[in-house]
Computed example of a mutant assay.
Amino acid sequence: MKGLLLCAGRGSRLRPLTFSRPKHLLPVMNKPVLFYGIESMVRAGIADIAVVVPPGYRKSFDEALRGGAPWNIKITLVEQPEPLGLADAVRVAEDYVGGDDFLLYLGDNVIDGPLSPLIERFRLERLEGLVSVSPVDRPEQFGVVQLDGDRLVRVVEKPKHPPSNLAINGVYLFRASIFRAIAGLRPSARGEYELTDAIQKLVEDGRQVGVFRSPYWWKDTGQPKDLILCNQHFLRRLEGLRVKGDIDARSNVTSPVVVGENTVIIDSVIRGPVVIGRGCRIENSYIGPYTAIADHAVVRGSEVENSIVMEHAVLDNVPTRIDESLIGADARVIGQSQPPKRARLWVGDHSQMHLPR
C-alpha cells in the first residue's frame, strides 16, 4: 500500500505566516504539521509516500523532507499546477499510485491515533474505499456522511443542512477505482473538483465504501487557534526534564521541559510543559506552560506562554505577556517596559514589531 499526502492548499486563513511557507510546514511542538501524518503512515508500515504540492512551494517541501530522512522511506513530490480541489489533487497523483491501493491523508490535519485499524478493515472487508469520520459541532464546515446503520449512503461537501454530525477527518483509503470516479466529475459550485463527489459516485455505482468511526483526537490546523490547540495537545505528553543545553543556578525550571543543544537559559523561570529548541538564548524571562520555542530563538526580558515561537525569532523586553500567539520565523518583537499587560499576536515571518515604552 502506498501513501498520499495532499499539501496543495493556499493556507489563506494562516496569513501572513503562509506568505513565506506552506501551512503544512508550520510547526507544532517544533515539528512541521506534515511530519505527523508521515510518521503515522510509517508506523502503519507504509514506506512509499507521495506528497502533492503547489509548484511555488516545491523547494520548501523538498528541503523539509530531504529525500525521506529521518524515516528512511521513499518520498515523491507531485505537483498540482492549479488549486482545483481535493479530487484534482488525487488525480495528479494517478501515475504515482498506478494500480496500487493507497491511504490518503490531508497534510494539514493531525490525527493522534494509529492508522493500522483502518488499513486492516479496508483489507479484510475488501472495500473499494474507506473514510474516517469524527463527530463535530459544526458539520457544515466539513465533508459530511449520511449513514443507514453502518452503511454509507451519501457524502456531501460543506452542506448548508448537514445530514449528520459525522465529518470526514482527513483520512481515506482507496483502490484505483477512485480515479475512474474522479475522471467523470464536473466542478462544484465552488469551482473545485470535490473528493466527496467522487466518493458519492463510488456509492452510486454499488461499490463498497466503509466508514470508520474514529475514536482519536483530531485537529484541522487551518487557523492560528488550531495550531495553538494542537501544540497544547502534544505538549501535554511531555514527561520529565531533558536538558542538553545550559541552565544557570539563578534559573527555576519546573518539568516537563525539553531543552535543546547549545541553548542557554539565564536568570529565567521555565514552567512546563515547554519545548525549547537548539541554539536558543533565554535570559531574564518567563516561559510559561504550553510554549514551544524553535531553534535559534532569543527571548530576553520577556514573558510568553501558551504560544509558538518559530526559528530565529527575537522577543526583546516586550512590555506585556505574550499569550496564545504565533511568532513567525525571523520576527522581532521589541519593547522596553515591564510586564504584566497581555498581548495577543499573530506575527508573520520576517516582520518586526516595536512596542511603546
Results as ranks from 00 to 15, higher is better:
residue 348 G to N: 10
residue 75 I to S: 05
residue 185 L to A: 04
residue 6 L to I: 15
residue 2 K to C: 05
residue 97 V to C: 08
residue 210 G to T: 13
residue 56 G to M: 01
residue 101 D to F: 02
residue 340 P to W: 05
residue 22 P to Y: 07
residue 315 L to D: 01
residue 324 E to Y: 14
residue 262 N to Q: 15
residue 280 C to Y: 00
residue 224 P to V: 01
residue 191 G to N: 09
residue 26 L to E: 05
residue 117 P to C: 06
residue 152 L to Q: 02
residue 51 V to F: 14
residue 307 S to Y: 02
residue 135 P to A: 04
residue 167 A to T: 09
residue 47 A to S: 13
residue 115 L to D: 06
residue 138 R to G: 01
residue 244 K to G: 00
residue 257 V to H: 01
residue 54 P to W: 03
residue 71 W to P: 03
residue 249 A to Y: 08
residue 39 E to D: 08
residue 144 V to K: 07
residue 232 Q to P: 00
residue 339 P to K: 08
residue 232 Q to H: 13
residue 201 K to I: 00
residue 202 L to D: 04
residue 89 A to G: 15
residue 237 R to S: 10
residue 137 D to I: 09
residue 314 V to H: 14
residue 202 L to C: 08
residue 273 P to S: 08
residue 293 I to R: 06
residue 151 R to E: 12
residue 319 P to W: 12
residue 217 W to V: 01
residue 249 A to I: 13
residue 39 E to A: 14
residue 225 K to G: 03
residue 329 A to V: 08
residue 215 P to N: 13
residue 172 Y to I: 01
residue 259 V to Y: 00
residue 63 E to V: 11
residue 37 G to F: 05
residue 205 D to M: 12
residue 308 I to E: 00
residue 130 L to N: 02
residue 321 R to N: 08
residue 116 S to K: 15
residue 182 I to E: 01
residue 51 V to L: 10
residue 258 V to E: 12
residue 148 D to M: 12
residue 4 L to K: 12
residue 318 V to Q: 10
residue 97 V to Q: 03
residue 218 W to N: 15
residue 14 L to P: 03
residue 80 Q to V: 01
residue 56 G to H: 06
residue 259 V to S: 05
residue 254 T to A: 05
residue 275 V to F: 13
residue 48 D to G: 07
residue 192 E to M: 11
residue 173 L to F: 02
residue 51 V to H: 05
residue 70 P to F: 14
residue 154 R to Y: 09
residue 327 I to V: 15
residue 335 G to S: 05
residue 45 G to M: 12
residue 124 L to T: 11
residue 4 L to I: 11
residue 10 R to F: 09
residue 104 L to I: 03
residue 198 A to E: 04
residue 181 A to K: 05
residue 351 S to E: 13
residue 269 V to L: 03
residue 125 E to H: 09
residue 198 A to N: 03
residue 213 R to F: 08
residue 184 G to S: 14
residue 217 W to N: 07
residue 213 R to L: 15
residue 294 A to Y: 10
residue 251 S to T: 08
residue 15 R to L: 15
residue 215 P to L: 13
residue 271 R to V: 11
residue 184 G to R: 12
residue 304 V to N: 06
residue 295 D to A: 07
residue 101 D to G: 04
residue 204 E to S: 11
residue 62 D to N: 10
residue 292 A to N: 01
residue 153 V to K: 13
residue 27 P to S: 09
residue 56 G to C: 09
residue 52 V to N: 08
residue 244 K to E: 14
residue 192 E to N: 15
residue 70 P to W: 11
residue 7 C to M: 12
residue 193 Y to R: 06
residue 26 L to Y: 05
residue 275 V to Y: 04
residue 6 L to G: 10
residue 69 A to S: 15
residue 187 P to Y: 10
residue 295 D to K: 00
residue 160 K to N: 11
residue 172 Y to R: 04
residue 352 Q to P: 02
residue 96 Y to S: 06
residue 48 D to I: 14
residue 118 L to Q: 11
residue 186 R to A: 11
residue 89 A to T: 02
residue 174 F to Q: 10
residue 145 V to G: 11
residue 164 S to Y: 04
residue 61 F to M: 03
residue 288 G to M: 01
residue 268 S to E: 00
residue 340 P to M: 00
residue 278 R to G: 09
residue 296 H to D: 12
